[in-house]
């Protein structure tokens, strides 16, 4: 964790405070907020959602609309977005989480698509397919986050906070309950754990994080359009979590950074980056189903065990 913080503090000074990479990493931070929640949902509770772009979109549009049309305070708008999104997630989650994973995947997918259609169709309200702009920037105690470097530190502090909280959850009774869902729902139930309730809770939590992420996005880019929250994003988010390793929170961060940075190198392929993502995803799922971080953890464990074995052998000889 400390290494993580140091790395992120040092990064801007390594690449230069005005570098384009700062922008890229701001987006990585914004998306990391969503993937942290998704990691809890997928890796720990074993449920898949293909609609988190919708929750992201709800956050972004609610924040954007309330601040531009009604001149709300951005923080108030952010809270309102959070509430709206969580309620929507609760409404969707309760019926679908009773069913198997496919239904949740498809229901969230449908929700996302409906929302995008809505954003596109209500031209008067949302600006339709071209979206709307002039969303104010965030300010903290009267200090407006104008420069990228300021926003960079702001976003990543929130990510760090979310990460710490997610880790607290994992190493608590709630975290154990979540892991038990993945390990075997039947036995978990017999231990007195109301697994369906926990599934809904995590789902709502992850939706809330996505909404927060959407609000931050709106205030950073100061412009939202339906393209920002299309299905493509939902799929990418799942890909990020899966590639990084869904059974580790760090996997979410690694996967997100990787997939946000990668397109910068794939520019040569122009539109065909999508093909690359698909291939990477399939290869990882087949050869390293626990993702990059999962594979790394397994490797370290194996090395350590071999080292210990050699160690005890040596002691045996002596």
């Amino acid at each position: 964790m400390i290494v993580f913080i140091l790395l992120f503090c040092a990064f801007p000074f390594l690449v230069g405070v005005k570098s384009y990479w700062i922008t890229v990493f701001i987006f990585a931070g914004i998306y990391s907020l969503i993937t942290i929640g998704l990691s809890l949902l997928m890796g720990y509770a074993g449920q898949i959602s293909l609609g988190h772009a919708a929750f992201f979109g709800m956050g972004a549009y609610t924040s954007g609309l309330l601040t531009t049309l009604l001149n709300w305070n951005p923080w108030l708008a952010l809270l309102a977005a959070l509430l709206l999104t969580s309620s929507a997630a609760l409404l969707i989650g309760i019926p679908t989480l009773r069913l198997s994973g496919h239904y949740l995947a498809m229901a969230t997918l449908a929700l996302g698509e409906i929302l995008v259609i809505f954003f596109k169709a209500e031209v008067e309200l949302t600006g339709g397919p071209s979206g709307f702009g002039l969303i104010p920037r965030l300010s903290i105690f009267g200090f407006v986050l104008k420069r990228d470097i300021e926003f960079y530190f702001f976003v990543w502090s929130i990510v760090a906070l979310a990460l710490v909280m997610a880790m607290n959850v994992i190493h608590s009774r709630v975290g154990r309950a979540l892991r038990s869902i993945h390990g075997g729902e039947l036995a978990a139930n017999a231990m007195g754990i109301n697994t369906s309730s926990y599934k809904v809770q995590v789902f709502v939590l992850s939706a809330a994080l996505a909404s927060l992420s959407g609000s931050l996005y709106a205030h950073y880019v100061t412009f939202v359009s339906p393209t920002a929250c299309e299905l493509k994003l939902s799929v990418f988010l799942v890909v990020m979590v899966a590639i990084g390793g869904m059974h580790h929170l760090w996997g979410a961060i690694v996967g997100t950074i990787l997939l946000t940075v990668l397109p910068e190198f794939l520019h040569v392929f122009q539109d065909f980056d999508i093909l690359a993502y698909g291939l990477i995803l399939m290869i990882i799922m087949i050869f390293a189903p626990n993702g990059l971080v999962g594979a790394l953890a397994a490797l370290i464990q194996r090395l350590r065990r071999r080292f210990l074995a050699v160690d005890s052998q040596r002691r045996g000889v002596i």
Binding site: I48, V238, G278, L279, L281, M282, I286
Partner: peptide, 8 residues
Amino acid sequence: IVTIGGSI
């Protein structure tokens, strides 16, 4: 996830 990858 793999079938999603396949569709991509």
